[in-house]
């Protein structure tokens, strides 16, 4: 962190930090503090300030079975989307890295989905999965009721998982490819000379060496899938049918801005913040240290 040489003009150094500190304090620390304040207070029904409520807001959130259903759904969503996006990307990256003919075309094409906005991807996938038009319509025409995400909660959940993973597949692919390129070519050549075929090299050499990338992505994917699903859900399912795709972030939005229950939404935000912080902490403390094989 410390450089050997630096300017001594402390006032200028401090001054340079003022703009960003002002932004961060206004738009990060103040809101985070406000969330705490709201979570522990309750607004009086006709205005005129807040009363201290202790853990009441948390208790009413925790006693609400709808909340726990949203939590369970969020975990199901997070783990399925992460598994799908990471394993898919890993396989594709490993095979793309064999650098057979046309691998550059594949590499470029697989990156593009990341540029597509989540709501736009959602529009595309709502079309792909729509029972009335698109790809699935062909089958639905023969077998009605076989597929209908607007009525069936499971179908709706599958749809948002696929739409969400599609974008993160590209994201993970970029990181896996970069990780594979960082492995010295000479190492792989040595293994080849020793008679290890491509699949054996993948299993015993490349995948273990990708471990840091893998765990980094695991944390990022889990965190993001708890947080970043709003655009997809809002466009494809609106949280339905019958709340089957109402995940934690969507519930916060819904309770806070539609239901105008700021205290409840703030309490839910705090819980989500803690969850994210735990995940990030795990990454910094545990994974960053344990997973280096060099």
């Amino acid at each position: 962190m410390a450089r050997k040489t630096a300017y001594k003009a402390a006032w200028l150094g401090g001054l340079l930090l003022v703009p960003q500190m002002a932004l961060v304090l206004t738009f990060f620390y103040w809101p985070a503090g406000a969330a705490l304040f709201w979570a522990f207070t309750l607004e009086r029904p006709w205005g005129g300030g807040n009363d201290f409520a202790g853990f009441d807001n948390f208790l009413s959130v925790f006693n609400d079975s709808a909340y726990w259903e949203a939590v369970i759904r969020s975990f199901v969503f997070a783990f399925s989307a992460t598994a799908l996006a990471m394993l898919g990307a890993l396989v594709l990256a490993l095979f793309c890295d064999r650098q057979l003919r046309f691998f550059r075309v594949v590499r470029t094409g697989l990156i593009w989905p990341y540029a597509v906005a989540a709501p736009a991807a959602a529009v595309a996938f709502r079309f792909v999965f729509a029972p009335e038009a698109g790809i699935f319509a062909t089958i639905v025409k023969q077998h009605p009721d076989w597929w209908n995400p607007a009525q069936n909660g499971l179908h709706a959940m599958l749809m948002i998982i696929v739409a969400y993973s599609w974008k993160y597949l590209a994201y993970n692919f970029i990181f896996f490819i970069a990780g594979l390129q960082a492995i010295p070519r000479s190492l792989i050549e040595a293994a080849a000379m020793d008679g290890a075929g491509p699949l054996l090299r993948m299993r015993t050499l490349q995948i273990p060496l990708l471990a840091p990338t893998f765990f980094f992505l695991l944390v990022i994917n889990l965190t993001d899938s708890f947080v970043d699903s709003f655009g997809i859900i809002d466009i494809t399912t609106g949280g339905g049918p019958s709340k089957a795709t109402t995940l934690m972030v969507y519930k916060i939005y819904f309770d806070g801005f539609r239901g105008l229950d700021y205290s409840g939404a703030a309490a839910q935000s705090i819980v989500l913040m803690l969850l994210i912080m735990v995940l990030t902490f795990v990454q910094f403390r545990y994974i960053e240290r344990k997973v280096h094989y060099t």
Partner: peptide
């Protein structure tokens, strides 16, 4: 991320 502290 912004999404978690969206209300405040």
């Amino acid at each position: 991320p912004l999404e978690v502290r969206i209300v405040p």
